[in-house]
């Protein structure tokens, strides 16, 4: 995909809504188009975290290895969402496996490249971190609700 095409695709992704042209141009330098077939992994637990994925189509399941229960699926992400922020937190290793449960098209933003750009241009770095923090906050809230197991604790009042 040409860099102009990448810029168009990036601009359309909700995570980058209203990002300035200048910063979008910086991102294009770190971006690559990726396609992952159903059943294949984008990320392997324990490996070096080297990318931020902006999902365009398909669905990705996040899996964790929980002995002796095996691999558990804990969350899915889909179109318009993003996957992975371990690239920005030392020691830069994935904490889960991500598997495509339907063919996935995504833009991969190189983690090392992003760290370098954030370090060189703090305004750009703030933009990215601000957006990532919002996503992390909403994921944290969703995880709390998931932990409450609201469907498992009912009393007899209503059918």
């Amino acid at each position: 995909m040409k860099s102009e095409d990448l810029a168009v695709v990036l601009r359309q992704h909700p995570f980058l809504g209203h990002l300035s042209e200048k910063h979008l141009h910086v991102l294009v330098g770190c971006a690559a188009n990726v396609h992952v077939g159903e059943g294949s992994c984008l990320i392997q637990e324990g490996e070096i975290a080297n990318a931020l994925y902006l999902v365009r189509t398909g669905r990705i399941a996040l899996e964790m290895e929980v002995p002796p229960r095996g691999s558990l699926r804990i969350q899915t992400v889909g179109p318009g969402e993003l996957l992975g922020w371990s690239w920005m937190i030392s020691p830069y290793r994935w904490h889960f496996t991500a598997r495509a449960v339907a063919d996935v098209r995504a833009i991969a933003l190189d983690g090392g490249c992003l760290r370098q750009k954030c370090s060189e241009d703090h305004d750009f770095g703030y933009e990215i971190l601000d957006r990532l923090t919002r996503v992390m906050e909403s994921r944290l809230e969703a995880t709390r609700l998931q932990l409450l197991d609201v469907y498992g604790t009912v009393v007899e009042v209503h059918g």
């Binding site: 909700p14 669905r59 399941a61 996040l62 691999s71 558990l72 699926r73 804990i74 969350q75 899915t76 889909g78 179109p79 318009g80 969402e81 449960v101 339907a102 969703a142 609700l145 998931q146 197991d149 469907y151």
Partner: peptide, 20 residues
């Protein structure tokens, strides 16, 4: 809220679906 490897649908709380 919880899926296994045979489930290909969404996993997560119902409020997460608003993003779609």
């Amino acid at each position: 809220d919880r899926g296994d490897s045979s489930w290909k649908g969404h996993i997560g709380v119902v409020t997460a679906l608003f993003s779609y």
